[in-house]
Design a protein around this nucleic acid. Structure first.
Lengths: 325, 325
DNA sequence: TACTTTTGATAAACCGATTTAGTAAATCGG
DNA sequence: CCGATTTACTAAATCGGTTTATCAAAAGTA
């Protein structure tokens, strides 16, 4: 294992630690040419590599930001994370991704761990069940940006999409095509995104003068979703169109439909809220509500970066538009 | 921002820093009941949170391991990383994932960065172009495990699959089905996995007494793959079966086939080396060569963990078997 | 010549924990 | 009752850098 320290370099070059430090930080203001040379040489021959931990301790920053994703299984999360990483990379930051697995306890653990590791800021896809914790971070002026989901009663920066509106439009399209039996499949309505999408659904039906049939609404965990959907599809007067709350719901729905021998595009129309990477492979015509994940990630990173650099600004909520495709 | 330090806690509790440190590390051997209470109370009222950076500096370990993935776009990488993360999570370690993007320069940068951050070990999907660097790490007894690809002339731990053998079997299957025109699409033969797969292909043809047609071998970057494949599919005596070197090649191939109006399973048979998450959605019967990604990730983590704990052991190469599905 | 300014480099404090060696008080054995 | 041991706690060194205050020598100025 390595053990070459700055003191070793200093000794080898015949200068002081301070000078080596200046050199490494490119503070050449008042530094002799030969001194530079000697240090460079010593670093080279010793194979010295700086210890960022020591530096961070003194500087009180780590050049790391944390991303806490509610559930990494959503392709959307990956896309957003990638965009954040790219931004970080361009600003000499390093992003650490943690997966809360939709578990508020895990989320809390990760937030605390990342803070203990002194990361300089956090981008959180909030589970929404740690409000006092979120609030504490913000009150301590710790840089935080929320993504994807809103957090009630906490005034922080957040980046979301127009969930209600785009769902409304999707359902409206179904109605325009003559559909009357429109189903809605979603995971438990615990977070803002799902609630808003559901509101969009309700409103669209209401505005179209259609009655909402509670049997057509499947609110369930992924684990039980398939069974419930199969029951739904076995109904006599079964849905002719279905809205899937996200990509994972979609996957289950496709399986259930396959098992039941119902053909998408022929026997039933389908809309998914979320982009699907393998979409081009599918032969069936499916409508996607695509969120501008990259833009959202980049914006989140920008807002975080601002906060990290102490730019004073009132918290804002930025709403991006999704697209029907 | 926070600023409560251990010294503050010590003062508030009326004890010394040392005692607080013992408390935090649960070394209660010789600690009075009331002292414990006082410290716990002080920590609570002050809202103290330890600084892991400071601890790491002294302890010379960070409880972090780095994963350097050659290209995060492969689903296989994600699966392996997930398994590693799980293992780490159970051993109170934290995994940091970096994406080298198939770029040896980036890979080098990340390796150096992670070492500077004092991560306790590295799991690398090597690009294969930084051999002296790999060697240096190993010579310094720095814990390293290579995954997916072999590194020539470097004696370190590595976890791979039987690329040649499973490709051989897949091609053999094609031959048994009566195929004569078997194409092979792959990214540039720069890394061991691709080379071995190609060898499997060659050997299978040879053993079957078939001549290898150079026109059926498409070796290309993803960016130009599609055009080349379309040219291949436009041939008069076009392939009736094709082997795709990995999931990304597969995606491009499917697009190209779609554009050409060639139906998989009907006009052409297809094998992919790699699992595809959305496989169940596809209606076409495709053969996958599935690598046991989770097991591989777990094993890699185990081997790294051993090294981190100074278990002496000669480097081994562990070969997992893939399955045709 | 005498004084100020610039240039080049350093000693020492510091960041916030861990850890070792050590000390005072309480307990014990004979 | 005295020396040895155990219990409870602490001072101070340490990890490997950064940063500030300071200083000596060289150069500039009047």
């Amino acid at each position: 294992m390595e053990k070459v320290t700055m003191a070793d370099v200093a000794k080898a070059a015949g200068v002081s630690k301070s000078t080596v430090s200046q050199f490494l930080n490119k503070r050449f203001e008042y530094m002799g040419e030969k001194t530079k040379q000697k240090i460079a040489e010593a670093i080279d021959t010793l194979g010295y590599q700086p210890n960022y931990i020591a530096r961070s301790l003194k500087q009180k920053r780590t050049s790391m930001v944390g991303i806490i994703v509610a559930n990494i299984m959503h392709y959307f999360s990956t896309e957003v994370s990638r965009a954040i990483e790219d931004f970080c990379h361009h600003h000499d930051l390093h992003a650490i991704v943690c997966n809360a697995d939709d578990d508020p306890e895990k989320e809390k653990k990760y937030i605390e761990m990342l803070r203990a590791k002194q990361v300089d800021g956090l981008i959180i896809f909030p589970t929404g069940q740690n409000n006092e914790l979120y609030e504490r971070l913000i009150n301590q002026d710790y840089p935080v940006v929320f993504v994807d989901r809103k957090v009630e009663n906490v005034r922080g920066f957040s980046i979301v999409t127009d969930n209600q509106d785009s769902t409304y439009k999707a359902i409206q399209q179904f109605v325009a095509q003559g559909h009357r039996n429109i189903a809605f499949a979603v995971q438990p309505l615990t977070v803002s995104t799902r609630k808003e999408r559901f509101q969009g659904y309700q409103k669209a039906l209401l505005d179209a003068g259609l009655e909402m049939n509670p049997e057509f609404i499947v609110e369930s965990d992924i684990s039980e979703m398939k069974a419930k959907l199969e029951r739904l599809f076995s109904m006599e007067d079964r849905p002719t169109a279905i809205f899937c709350g996200n990509d994972r719901v979609f996957l289950v729905a496709v399986e259930a439909l396959k098992d039941k021998g119902i053909k998408i595009g022929k026997d039933i129309e389908l809309v998914v809220f979320d982009n699907i990477p393998f979409a081009p492979l599918l032969e069936t015509p499916i409508t996607f509500i695509v969120q501008p994940a990259s833009e959202m990630g980049t914006k989140a990173a920008e807002l975080l970066f601002e906060q990290m650099n102490k730019v004073e600004r009132d918290p804002v909520e930025i709403v991006f538009q999704s697209k029907l495709m």
